[in-house]
């Protein structure tokens, strides 16, 4: 971009977000980040880009089990502990307008869901797709391992349903997903959500809105302090 009297501030602040569709804190982090950007005086100068991350890449592709059953089996968590954990997060989510329905959430391999995000990105629908997948997973209890479900969601966003089916059948966007995962590894990301502001500063986790506001303010100040 050509520099001007406005210097680098004329370019958007880029927030790169690594997240996974089955990550409940990513759903919350997505909502809280949105709140922060809306509050930020220069919010129109912010670009959010989502990147794929897989918490459970070894989970069998195409299969789905209730997430609570998976937690109980995988970690030996007693039901009361699972419920307490859910209640705490559901309360935080409600403050951000999210309706967590944890008993309906499914554990899946999210590779195909990430394909849909990359498909949507190619058509300028990345953020709506991220929103829709989170809601499908944590509120609607849809099975996101099911290609028909994923294709329906793509169609709901105005994308070509047959293109979505083709992307799923041909395992499209594999290189894009690999690139996201490789970059995450390069950056040392071991958990999500993870937010990188202008490739310089980072926030780990679904932090309070004030933390994201602080990150945006500091990033804006960084720009003012740096030469155009």
């Amino acid at each position: 971009m050509t520099s001007s009297v406005f210097g680098r501030a004329a370019e958007p602040i880029v927030i790169d977000v690594w997240s996974d569709v089955v990550c409940p804190f990513c759903y919350l982090g997505n909502a809280v980040l949105k709140e922060a950007v809306e509050q930020f005086p220069h919010g129109s100068s912010v670009q959010v880009r989502y990147h794929s991350f897989q918490l459970n890449p070894g989970f069998p592709v195409g299969e789905a089990v209730l997430a609570d059953n998976y937690l109980a089996q995988q970690y030996g968590m007693p039901p009361a502990q699972i419920e307490a954990s859910h209640a705490q997060l559901a309360a935080r989510g409600a403050e951000s307008g999210l309706d967590y329905q944890f008993p309906r959430s499914m554990m899946i391999n999210t590779l195909d869901a990430h394909r849909m995000i990359h498909l949507a990105k190619a058509h300028g629908q990345e953020l709506p797709m991220v929103d829709r997948l989170f809601r499908a997973e944590f509120t609607d209890g849809l099975n996101l391992a099911d290609h028909e479900v994923l294709a329906d969601l793509a169609a709901d966003l105005g994308l070509d349903r047959s293109a979505a089916v083709t992307a799923l059948e041909t395992k499209a966007y594999e290189q894009d997903i690999r690139a996201d995962l490789a970059r995450a590894r390069e950056l040392g990301i071991s958990g999500v959500p993870f937010f990188v502001f202008d490739n310089k500063r980072a926030v780990s986790g679904a932090q309070p809105v004030e933390m994201f506001r602080r990150a945006l303010d500091i990033t804006w100040q960084d720009r003012a302090a740096s030469p155009a």
Partner: peptide
């Protein structure tokens, strides 16, 4: 180019993360 080390904004609350083993 290899990225410069990120500057983490520290928080008093380090929860709110799902780790690679799936534990949140």
């Amino acid at each position: 180019p290899a990225p410069a080390p990120l500057i983490m904004l520290e928080s008093s609350d380090d929860s709110g993360v799902c780790a690679v083993d799936g534990w949140c």
